[in-house]
Write a protein that binds this DNA or RNA. Structure first.
Lengths: 250, 250
DNA sequence: TTGCAGCCTGACGCTACGTCAGGGTCAAGG
DNA sequence: CCTTGACCCTGACGTAGCGTCAGGCTGCAA
């Protein structure tokens, strides 16, 4: 792909790609004889990461060091981004609440103190704060998590993990063909094992996130296809069971 | 207040306040004999607005024109900010979902197409997009809303509105002293009237937002005090009724 | 072969500040 | 009374992340 196509796909300008090339953040892996930039799939992967980190407020130079760190696997980046995005979510929710509070205060004739009104801004700095939280919290448990996870897996580990996954899927299918409802205890128990298997082997997956995955299994054809291949109707069954289990867990 | 205090309160640097002064975005309303900047409460109000708009990605120049527009009342700004913040909330949620999707895809060995992965970035530009949505959507219904709302109220309107509010509060209090549960139909009906009165007279207040207000009535002492002054226990009563009504409405 | 869209490389401009430099101000303590 | 350290002032220059020409080559469709 050439610059124009990549730019259109990623929603950035050609100039931006030129810039990333010059500063060495993202250099296309090839050029045509005429000097046209040629972007390979791997370059798109990297661009994707770059844009995520940029959106999260990281300076480009830091993005480069993050992505070029030899010991950082892709999964670790995803986990980090997930954490930071949820932090942003919380912050935005707090700001929404603050604005609502002010609207209500005005309509009731109550006036807020300056401290209250600036509460949500307190010493923030959108980028640095998130990066800081990351530094102090992220790399304690999550770094350890990252280390003992996929990066360190041997072939045997992968075989075992695949087997675990297949086992759980088979038990879902068995429950379904036995006519057990998807929101029954038996199905939910399998769902809970599914969640814990994800936690053990891949990434931290709280109930809420697991419910999101459940929804995706029926909404996204790729995941639907994965389950339908095992047994027809299994995608919907697993989806329901997973969401029911999430509701049960709280 | 002098620069340092304001900076600490608002979570910005002194340099930032200097900058805002020089470009005329926020000039303190006074100076000491020695030339020290003196910020009045009104200046803090303005700073608050500036920071909100800045956070939403507006360029400072545009913030200035927005805030200096003679026909824009504070309520309109709050409504606009509320809309934009919710747009950001949705976008962030979409990004969280996208990252979760990718994590799950990796753990299941499915690989996503570039289009899917850049979906969430598509033609965005964090500031402009929000500003654009604002231009096209906001100023159609909401501008009309703004116009016929508080800005145009006469003294009589205010008297009527105050009376309406007092009436609803009295009916809440009556229901409570009658021993009617806060989640009964009677109490929820009053809550619904409360919501509709806010919509008519002040700002658009969907069920979800109303529930948020309900929570605030018991969490924030200012609002609690407002209701407790009418009758002890009324804050909790109204809060419960409002949240129950929001749940009822869906 | 002739457009015209798309690509290239400088190079300068712009926003929203960060960061000194050089110098007054103010309240507390010696 | 005087000094000291924290705070304030005004330039002035620097920086990040591009936007925006300018001047020129490339590629493909008519």
């Amino acid at each position: 792909m050439n610059v124009g196509e990549v730019a259109a796909l990623a929603g950035v300008t050609v100039r931006t790609l030129h810039h990333y090339d010059r500063i060495g953040l993202l250099s296309p892996s090839g050029r045509t004889a005429a000097g046209y930039r040629q972007y390979a799939p791997a370059d798109l992967d990297r661009l994707h990461q770059v844009l995520l980190y940029r959106e999260l407020g990281f300076p480009l130079e830091e993005v480069a060091t993050l992505l070029d760190a030899p010991d950082a696997d892709p999964e670790a980046h995803l986990r980090r981004q997930h954490r930071l995005l949820r932090a942003r979510l919380e912050r935005t929710q707090a700001m929404v609440a603050a604005v609502e509070k002010e609207m209500e205060a005005r309509s009731m004739g109550i006036s807020l103190t300056p401290e209250e009104r600036f509460e949500v801004f307190g010493e923030h700095d959108p980028a640095q704060y998130e990066a800081e939280v990351e530094e102090r919290w992220g790399e304690t448990d999550a770094y350890a998590q990252s280390k003992r996870k996929t990066a360190a897996y041997t072939k045997d580990d992968w075989v075992r993990i695949k087997a675990e996954g297949a086992d759980i899927e088979a038990r879902f299918a068995a429950a379904m063909t036995d006519g057990v409802p998807a929101d029954s205890d038996r199905a939910m128990d399998v769902a809970e094992e599914h969640r814990q298997q994800i936690c053990r082997n891949f990434y931290d997956c709280p109930a809420e996130m697991h419910a999101g995955l459940g929804r995706m299994y029926v909404e996204d054809e790729r995941f639907t296809a994965h389950y339908e291949e095992i047994a027809p109707g299994l995608a919907q069954y697993v989806s329901t069971a997973v969401q029911a289990n999430a509701a049960r867990q709280g």
